[in-house]
Nucleic acid binder design. Structure first.
Lengths: 105, 105
DNA sequence: ACAAACAAGTCTGTATTGCAAACTGGTATG
DNA sequence: CATACCAGTTTGCAATACAGACTTGTTTGT
């Protein structure tokens, strides 16, 4: 028992490919609307909506609903915490992914 | 619809943290026995066993059962396919993880 | 005026699957 | 003889990702 479960500490919320995709996009562009994410990720509306809600619950993104005229527009942005979480995730993954190489031709 | 789901192509089998852990270990040491993996990963026996079976089904690892005296010993090694899959996975993840752009103070 | 399509969801149902714990079977040890 | 180790298989549960249907309001096409 116990061991060193530093691996398990991978943030499951970000780890999920769909959300990893979303977070990565947000990290790059800093702000995006629903449709942009929808097209860029190729997810379905419902799916994207759900994932965004989860990220919002976790405090990783902030969702702002505005109106462009009468048309609703949903803006999504990473919060500082989300940004931080992504960086931590990224670091941890790096450790996993290219570990100090061992004797291996 | 359609879009470009190059992200989705992340190999789910390897992506799962527990298995990512296993594969990474195997990639490093090239050969490991059950107990080593058990202690190193901190998984339960059943869990480890299940994950190994899945990796075996996918052809990513080869499991060799030997006997050390009368005590069973289970050796696990990455197959070339597994090795290939891990490298592909790693590459794809790299693309995701440190993206080219970054205009962001 | 009416139909269709868009924007941004919510809700539901299904199917996977990860995980822990219990059980199995054989061996060594006290 | 009972306990503990090795290496599993099976079971049961809980979470969840995903697609698709349904909703509400708005704009556009004819």
């Amino acid at each position: 028992m116990s061991a060193t479960p530093r691996w398990q500490d991978l943030d499951r919320l970000i780890h999920e490919p769909a959300r990893l995709m979303i977070v990565t996009l947000l990290y790059a562009v800093e702000e995006a609307d629903f449709l942009y994410l929808l097209h860029e990720t190729g997810l379905t509306k419902g799916n994207l909506s759900t994932h965004l809600s989860k990220l919002e619950e976790a405090g990783y993104v902030r969702i702002t609903k505005t109106f462009r005229g009468k048309i609703p527009r949903t803006l999504v942005a990473l919060t500082p915490e989300g940004r931080q979480a992504f960086e931590t995730y990224r670091q941890r993954l790096s450790h996993l992914i290219h570990p100090p190489i061992q004797g291996d031709p």
